[in-house]
Design a protein around this nucleic acid. Structure first.
Lengths: 238, 238
DNA sequence: TGAGGTCTAAACCTTTAGATTAATAAACGG
DNA sequence: CCGTTTATTAATCTAAAGGTTTAGACCTCA
């Protein structure tokens, strides 16, 4: 499924622009077209149109303003990524808000540039992502990592939380809890573990005491918030 | 709480080295000490000792080999970060495994370098992180982002899952569900929303039907896995 | 061998959860 | 304006969950 995609000289890089500000649209198009290696093949003033254009033309690069009304640019990036085309999206915005950068990268953006940046950087970004690289200017990269680490700080504080009550569970109790986190009833747990329903209740009660909760919902929430599922490798640790 | 930390000329950058390989330890110390602006004030051959040394000397930079036996380097990085000192950790390893890079950054590493890299890069990395920057060489940065985006791909596929059943909930039902995700009982919900317990049960039943689940645990799991909490801004969207 | 922990199970009881049905009021379309 | 839908409210009844106590079988470690 992997398609090699180096810059083929002679063929221009096909670009689609999406920006709700018409003046910006024209300006950027002008700028990009000046670069002989690039060609803006279509423009859109909202995200929905942009997505349709991408489906139709399958461009090399999409420059997506992520501050658009209605369907926002971030969602649009995600939808384009999920098309699994060979299209790279570069997020374009006026703000260097860390959360925005983080979410854009999360959605699959291959680059992120500010409208206030020098125009040469835009061309450079296009060339970089065309080579399969990620383009994040140094300043934005720092913001991204700051935000990234801040986001995971609480989690790791919780996950290795002084006293993680999950550690006191026995193997059997972990097995029961794992089934509880899947929404299985006592009867279901009993059948899957080949024990009686009353035994399940005993285990569950012990779990409640150890986790200091009163019911299964709270137990499940505790388990999820304290890395139980991660440990079980049911889901990638985030 | 923010302390400005620029390079103060005249004062050497205090560095602690942690590497279980004694030869590497000597080599890196030699290398770092050659840089007149740097000084290795202590070395450790395992993570536990390293952490104690950090507590004692509060160095500017820790070069941490993350492939050590017993307590692994990644956990050590996390523990050092949680000390909230002004110490920056640079991960040091022989492998450019994306997962390793991702986890190191998650734990709070400010830089990541390979032992195979040119020695000059090590010095450069130290200087960069001392300026508050993140040091990730281009190649490793790409690996990081690839991994980052791959990790979040599934999640966003779920989150904006064609048909997110959460969208069919009424406002009242959302209020009820929000309380359910906190492990509140029917009685508790009734008191908080000033309605009768039986009314709560009706809402809950409607929620079950709309989310196509059979009990509150499954409803809560559905809500969590489909971005309900994120939307409610109770928790940072990851 | 005896103390302690785990896993199993049962009886008995209280509380909560879940299913069904239905009344009221607001919103909407023709 | 009236029938239709939808949201919200509510009562009743059954099933499931949860609390408590007791106890036997098994294993381990001192």
């Amino acid at each position: 499924m992997y398609m090699k995609r180096t810059m083929e000289y002679g063929k221009k890089i096909k670009i689609i622009l999406a920006d709700d500000n018409f003046d910006h649209l024209l300006g950027i198009r002008e700028l990009v077209n000046m670069e002989t290696n690039c060609e803006v093949i279509a423009t859109a003033t909202n995200a929905s149109i942009a997505i349709n254009l991408v489906k139709k033309y399958q461009p090399d690069v999409v420059l997506m303003d992520i501050n658009m009304p209605e369907k926002d640019g971030l969602t649009a990036i995600n939808e384009i990524e999920r098309l699994n085309l060979n299209t790279r999206v570069i997020a374009l915005t006026g703000y260097d808000d860390p959360d925005l950068i983080f979410r854009a990268m999360k959605m699959g953006a291959k680059g992120y540039i500010l409208k206030t940046m020098a125009s040469a950087q835009l061309i450079y970004a296009i060339e970089e992502v065309m080579q399969g690289k990620i383009y994040l200017p140094s300043g934005l990269s720092s913001k991204f990592f700051e935000y990234f680490q801040k986001t995971f700080k609480e989690e790791s504080n919780n996950a290795s939380n002084e006293e993680n009550l999950l550690q006191y569970l026995t193997q059997r109790e972990e097995e029961v809890l794992e089934l509880l986190t899947q929404g299985v009833t006592y009867k279901g747990v009993a059948q899957q573990l080949f024990i009686s329903e009353t035994t399940v209740k005993t285990h569950v009660n012990n779990i409640f005491q150890k986790l200091q909760v009163n019911d299964r919902t709270q137990a499940v929430l505790y388990a999820i918030n304290n890395g139980f599922l991660n440990r079980k490798k049911l889901k990638m640790a985030i």
